[in-house]
Design a protein around this nucleic acid. Structure first.
Lengths: 217, 217
DNA sequence: GCAGACCTACCTACCTGTCGGTAGTTTTGG
DNA sequence: CCAAAACTACCGACAGGTAGGTAGGTCTGC
């Protein structure tokens, strides 16, 4: 809330031209995202983040009042990116299985593009939102309920097999997120790097095919 | 290694009679499991663990040489419990879907009985085994490969639908673990407590039914 | 000249692990 | 049989290190 909207740049003028010239604030957010995702809240020090940006810790604290405030802002950025990216697929006019596949693929690709997001969300889901002012579950709950309603409607018309829609969503959540959040572990379980283009294509097709088999009568 | 083999008890005499009278060492392991699962390695201090047992930190370090050694022993205990509990289901003589259902249910119930185990494993999977001498993936890999072989054989005989067996296992892993590891998050997403008997029964039936639908032709 | 960005130096709180010592029990040997 | 020796379990105090956060000064660009 109360977006500072990139304080230093005059009025958001030519931002696309000098895109590599990010403000220090943006660099901090970027570095913080990567490190929080990698090491969690407690496992990441402000020194690490500052060093990654190339400044000292007090300079970082000039841009953000505290570690917790920085973490919250990273998380808010994450959530707004998430909603923005999935809005198209969710709001699409498709029906039945086509829409599910659309959302599934959009989610998968978003997570593949932003594995750090997945790891941060997963950590927060495990911890139960200790470092977060906002409650992750209450933010996601409206979408969750809408999705459950969608499945139930399609089940009643016979488009999908009848089953517990919320359990289905939880399973989908687990299938989508686990691959990215547990990538360091899967790395040792598979013969190929989980984030390679080939492996990602495999995974996406499997998920789509798997859910189609479970949903269509 | 170099097992001390329960130093205090004289010669392992009547251990079953005074089972509630656990040794301090056992109490430490128990408390450490709960706290490591809840807060992770970095988020748990030896003071917290010692306080939970009712002793001071130096006394705890009398029983374990270091925090890392304690963590490793907790994890080894976890893994041996895991293998012991699932050995029956995995070694069963059943074939085809019946065996999959057996293992699925055995795993589910083991995790339901030991949610702390799931949370510790999940944290380790995310972190990639930073605090562990052993590598989780290499320990689990033989079972993983055996399971993949099993699925592939059953697919070739037409018992199961043909699909990527390793992707299938990863999806099963995600479906089973996520429910327990992310319980604090799911608590806010559902209307019932995820670990209540009703909710657990729901979840178990969903998983079994879901995988049956995806596997059977 | 002044505001924003950055710095060094410092503070307090907390962490793990060690040291020296104590009380009580077990082992040993004469 | 019993006292000396050894061992177990515990503790308070401390050392060394790192964390987040603050105070105050310097530099730079408008």
């Amino acid at each position: 809330m109360a977006q500072h909207t990139s304080a230093p740049s005059p009025a958001g003028a030519q931002r696309d031209l000098d895109s590599p010239a990010r403000t220090t604030r943006e660099q901090i957010l970027e570095e913080a995202l990567a490190l929080f995702a990698q090491g969690g809240y407690g496992g990441t020090s402000l020194n690490d983040i500052a060093a990654g940006v190339g400044i000292r810790r007090p300079s970082l604290l000039h841009h953000f009042p505290s570690k917790e405030a920085l973490y919250q802002e990273v998380f808010e950025l994450l959530l707004s990116d998430w909603f923005e990216r999935l809005a198209g697929a969710i709001g699409s006019a498709e029906r039945g299985w086509d829409k599910v596949e659309l959302v599934l693929r959009a989610g998968f690709r978003f997570f593949a593009d932003n594995p750090s997001y997945v790891r941060m969300v997963r950590r927060e889901a495990i911890d139960g939102g200790q470092h977060l002012g906002i409650d992750l579950a209450s933010v996601l709950r409206p979408s969750f309920d809408l999705a459950a309603d969608y499945f139930e409607r399609e089940m009643q018309t016979g488009t999908f097999r009848t089953q517990d829609s919320r359990q289905l969503l939880i399973t989908g959540y687990g299938a989508l997120l686990s691959y990215f959040s547990d990538e360091p572990f899967l790395e040792g379980l598979l013969d190929m790097a989980p984030m390679s283009a080939d492996a990602l294509a495999n995974r996406e097709e499997h998920i789509v095919q798997f859910f189609r088999a479970a949903l269509l009568p």
